[in-house]
């Protein structure tokens, strides 16, 4: 099934990207985590009709993708997959909020259209920021930072283990689907009537795998503690990066750069 293989490819490609050695990759994961969260909060704190105020924020993902050598295509394709939900949720705005806000080149634009566009811009920005974080920081490093910000270790361990087994189980499921289709050539998809046996089989195989994993872990001295590789300390550059980026976000939040640049020309 293409959806399954596609998701494996996605995880692997993000993992490969995170292995890079650019300036962005070298920034301390904690600095990146904090700036990303700060970025998200600042972006969604804009009021529902903001458009021009949001545009300068595109500088952040664009520069990071350029410096971090992240191919634009991989981020953009993911964006297209993520957009529909916000698109349809926001689509109601032009219908319900029809009061005219302004007339642009002879075309009346309603508040609803403004807020709809604002939702789309916010979606693009937030999705890009998270993807860039994960494309420049490996999951192991992120996990260690999660522990440092006091997220329970057992929960972080859960995230890491799920992440580790994901590719394995998706592959297992994909093999089972191929086998199913080979035996039912004229049928599209898997019938609901077979859901129980199909998923049940996958479940039993998963349990079996968990058993094997447990034995293997036990053989290597596992006693319920999972050890995370500690990362380096934050250097002065990391602090400066965090400070600089967060200040820039705050400035962009307070000052509408688009309007200032625009007023020079209009």
């Amino acid at each position: 099934m293409s959806k399954l293989t596609e998701s494996i490819n996605r995880i692997q490609s993000l993992e490969e990207l995170a292995d890079g050695k650019t300036a962005i990759h070298c920034i301390h994961p904690m600095a990146k985590l904090i700036t990303t969260i700060f970025f998200l909060v600042v972006v969604i704190s804009f009021d529902k009709y903001s458009i021009s105020g949001l545009i300068p924020f595109f500088t952040y993902p664009i520069l990071l993708m350029a410096f971090g050598e992240i191919p634009y295509r991989s981020v953009l394709t993911r964006l297209i997959v993520a957009l529909p939900f916000s698109f349809f949720a926001g689509l109601s705005n032009p219908f319900f909020d029809r009061e005219t806000a302004l007339i642009l080149l002879g075309i009346p634009v309603s508040w609803g259209i403004l807020s709809f566009l604002s939702i789309i811009l916010k979606t693009v920005l937030t999705v890009m920021a998270v993807l860039i974080l994960i494309a420049t920081t490996s999951m192991d490093k992120l996990a260690y930072q999660m522990i440092r910000i006091k997220i329970p270790k057992i929960f972080v361990m859960q995230i890491m283990l799920t992440y580790r087994y994901l590719t394995l189980l998706i592959k297992e499921a994909s093999d089972m689907i191929t086998a199913y289709h080979l035996r039912s050539s004229r049928q599209k998809g898997i019938r609901l009537a077979h859901a129980g046996t199909f998923m049940g089989q996958l479940l039993l195989r998963s349990f079996e795998r968990a058993e094997k994993v447990y034995v293997a872990m036990k053989c290597r001295g596992f006693n319920g503690e999972y050890h995370f590789a500690s990362s380096e300390r934050m250097r002065r550059g990391d602090y400066l990066y965090g400070l600089f980026v967060c200040t820039a976000f705050l400035l962009m939040r307070g000052i509408n750069l688009s309007r200032i640049v625009g007023s020079i020309f209009v």
Binding site: S52, G53, I55, N256, S258, R259, I260, G262, F265, V266
Partner: peptide, 11 residues
């Protein structure tokens, strides 16, 4: 908005 739009475009 016009200045915002043009400015946004330039930015």
């Amino acid at each position: 908005s016009v200045s915002g739009m043009i400015g946004g475009g330039i930015t």
